[in-house]
């Protein structure tokens, strides 16, 4: 397996000695084009893992390799989306989605001359997530679920090799969430970026991921992994399969153990 993202024995302590040890001896490998979900008890360091993977926080110990290069600063070109969609209220939805193009090369220098082409691309993406006709609206004129769709588009517009999603659907109701699972799966199948998805929704993890990594309570590290082999595209029917429920249950009891271990 050629790893696209690799963490080797990463420790991360926030705020100097005596600070919070968020990750301890955390190692993982994610293959190129793989869809991996990370689950674990709350506060175990999932968001931290994302920040370390993308080089937004330097690891205190251990190393991170992305695309064959050891990470020593923000990796660049990574698409990210978070639980709160953090759109820019002064920009239209379209301009929000196009923000990465103003930053990432080669789009950055091509954008001015090829604006129409890029806009078409953004609108195509917005159509894909069901936001056609909302390009000229402002994000605050959209519902939470719609903002989250826009935020997915923003994460994808520059065709990133790596997509980091930190509970992107966490604030949404179940119906919207399940709808967006399908959208995300479609996007992934069409473009095959490497995706690392943090979630606290085990069904979401099982539905979307090729592989699920389970983290221990803080300080977090990967304690187990589960392969999910349901054929793609998965549909809501998949979630009613007994195997689906089985995996979900297994994961749930493991998380409970991890939490109990912390409480003890």
């Amino acid at each position: 397996m050629s790893a696209f993202v690799e963490m080797n024995g990463v420790h991360l302590r926030y705020g100097g000695t005596g600070g919070t040890l968020a990750l301890a001896d955390c190692s993982l490998k994610v293959a190129d084009g793989e869809f991996v979900a990370v689950v674990g008890p709350s506060g175990c360091g999932k968001s931290t893992l994302m920040k370390v993977c993308t080089g937004l926080w330097p690891a205190s110990r251990g190393n991170v390799i992305v695309g064959g290069h050891e990470v020593s600063g923000p990796v660049g070109i990574v698409g990210m989306a978070f639980q709160n969609s953090v759109q820019l209220p002064w920009r239209t939805v379209l301009d929000n989605v196009m923000l990465p193009l103003e930053i990432v090369e080669p789009h950055r220098s091509r954008l001015k001359a090829n604006r129409a082409e890029y806009e078409a691309r953004a609108i195509e993406l917005l159509t894909l997530v069901g936001l056609k006709g909302f390009e000229k609206k402002f994000p605050w004129q959209l519902s939470g679920g719609m903002q989250q769709r826009a935020s997915l588009c923003r994460a994808l517009i520059h065709d990133p090799k790596l997509l980091m999603l930190d509970e992107p659907f966490g604030a949404l109701d179940m119906f919207t969430r399940e709808e967006l699972w399908a959208v995300l799966q479609d996007l992934w199948m069409a473009r095959k970026p490497t995706i690392i998805l943090v979630t606290h929704d085990l069904r979401e993890a099982v539905f979307l991921a090729d592989r699920i990594l389970m983290m221990s309570a803080r300080p977090g590290r990967i304690i187990s992994e589960h392969k999910v082999d349901f054929p793609r595209p998965r549909t809501l029917e998949t979630t009613y399969l007994p195997e689906f429920t089985e995996i979900t249950h297994a994961l749930r009891s493991q998380i409970q153990q991890a939490r109990a271990a912390q409480a003890a």
């Binding site: 937004l56 698409g79 990210m80 978070f82 930053i103 994460a155």
Partner: peptide, 8 residues
């Protein structure tokens, strides 16, 4: 973070 992860 979104911007820095893009290499801003």
């Amino acid at each position: 973070d979104v911007c820095r992860a893009l290499g801003a």
